[in-house]
Design a protein around this nucleic acid. Sequence first.
DNA 1: CTACATCCTCTAGTGACTAGAGGTGCAAGA
DNA 2: TCTTGCACCTCTAGTCACTAGAGGATGTAG
Lengths: 140, 140
Amino acid sequence: MKKITIGEAARQSGVKVPTIRYYESIGLLAEPERSEGNQRSYEPSHLHRLAFIRHARELGFEVDAIRTLLALQDDPNQSCASADAIAKARLIEVEQRIRSLTALKAELEMMVEGCGHGRVDQCRVIEVLADHGQCMHPHH
Amino acid sequence: MKKITIGEAARQSGVKVPTIRYYESIGLLAEPERSEGNQRSYEPSHLHRLAFIRHARELGFEVDAIRTLLALQDDPNQSCASADAIAKARLIEVEQRIRSLTALKAELEMMVEGCGHGRVDQCRVIEVLADHGQCMHPHH
DNA sequence: CTACATCCTCTAGTGACTAGAGGTGCAAGA
DNA sequence: TCTTGCACCTCTAGTCACTAGAGGATGTAG
């Protein structure tokens, strides 16, 4: 058995030590066995779990969604419709967010370009903020 | 004088009532006068401020940045270099975020497309999550 | 044996709100 | 005048996904 400490698990998974403990506390990661001195002792299965969680978090899935995805992973006979739905929902969110950020980008660019680098009373940044009517993009 | 209640201010500014009180509590919005019955009584200047804050928040500026921008607005003689810098920093953030989300979008699309809508053990969504090596995009 | 890193638990803080409890003010209709 | 009912008040606590720090125990290298 190649049991490892929480620090080593953190190093190998890229998830920080307090975050690993946090995942355990919210029931996302199973409680590992403990050493004689009460220190957590992780097995490879925990590392796989951590990698899964980390990747899902990087993709922006919420903890609740990850909980569902993990449950699905544990039951390979199940239909993957739920996993599909979760991923699709996340995709729609991401697309929405990109659209909205692209509109923001355009508005910010206009503000920054319009700034004459002079005094505040001619500054387009402040002006546009103060008067939303000057914003061309109906992003909000 | 056209003083208005907090509810009316909320309606006109699009900022929710508790949020207005929150902005006051953190010193972003000046404390308004009170009626005899201790109710907040807002003037047009407060509404302009709220509109400014709301627009800035929609553009993703943090409260601290907004504090700075508001201070600049109050002092029109000042150089607008700070406002310019804040907007530019935000623009860079937004561009970064768009790039990162675009990479995520590609990965999510591959996951969703690859899903055969069958059982979990053939599901690409779960598979890709479990094995980051299958992810083509070096977004993280 | 002694440093010293790493581990433990627990509490509290982050940002920007949001929700709820428990109470007061105010305007309109009966 | 009373009452209905909404809007307002303050205060505390909850949200999400962590992060920071206190105060102490354990494990390991020299």
